[in-house]
Amino acid sequence: METPIVSLNGVTFQYDGQERKALNQVSFDIYDGEWLTIVGHNGSGKSTLAKLLIGLQFPSEGEITVCGIKLNEENIWDIRKKIGMVFQNPDNQFVGTTVQDDVAFGLENMGIPREEMVHRVEDSLKKVNMTQFLHQEPHHLSGGQKQRVAIAGVLALRPAIIILDEATSMLDPRGREEVVETVRALQDEKSLTVISITHDLEEAAKADRMIVMNKGELFREGTPEEIFSMDEQLIQLGLDIPFSVKMAKAFRSAGIPLSKHYLSEEELVTELWTSRSRM
């Protein structure tokens, strides 16, 4: 078994003045280079999880280890060099007056020398395909473009892990696609670990592994195939099921036999094709 890059052990967290624990005894590992998707209804604790991972909050019980370092208040600045985060609202994380200034912001904070900064800004903008917008001001950019700039800002710091905290939820379908494709290309090209918190099931279906959160607890952990086999249960948790699962269900109730429980859209088409040609 590979060694985990992040591990959570019995993590519990409660916001001040709230009765319910936002997170209760959550334990799981994240492995180097994987794409992990965390799903759950609003208020399930998934965003709190992201805040704890980057040291914006600290667990009241349990511990979090990132790249072998146990996270505490003294070493958060080192941890933040290893984990980058893209937030939900494209506007409220754009600090710079232009695209290049925004990408440079994190580098300035780390005291990177200017020549190196210029190089890294250019390099990261190239990776997210935003080079031609170097001097653009944020209010002239679309939501998807702003999120790509935010990703470039994270990449410039050369982190091992990137967290997308509902980073596509305020975007239109085109913007959503832009962002997901950008991150996917990055992950394919080198060993970047992606933790994506999302409602978008089509996006989740492409992950290596999924975690389902419910009421502050880890409800289920598994491959998308395993998770989507839960069908009705997912709906009860306030989530949705992907289209191919809905379709497969309809086929079964219409009396069309299928080989296994979870099938992707392509598999479903192929299966129907075989059953037709068999006749």
Binding site: A250, S253, A254, E265, L272, M279
Partner: peptide, 29 residues
């Protein structure tokens, strides 16, 4: 559309709900 392409035939119309489509497919099969 994907299915039509794979099967090489067209259904009589475009279906807008999962149930209608699955019924049509079941009929075909």
């Amino acid at each position: 559309l994907k299915l039509e392409e794979k099967w090489g035939t067209k259904f009589e119309k475009i279906f807008l709900s999962i149930d209608q489509l699955s019924a049509a497919i079941a009929k075909q099969l």
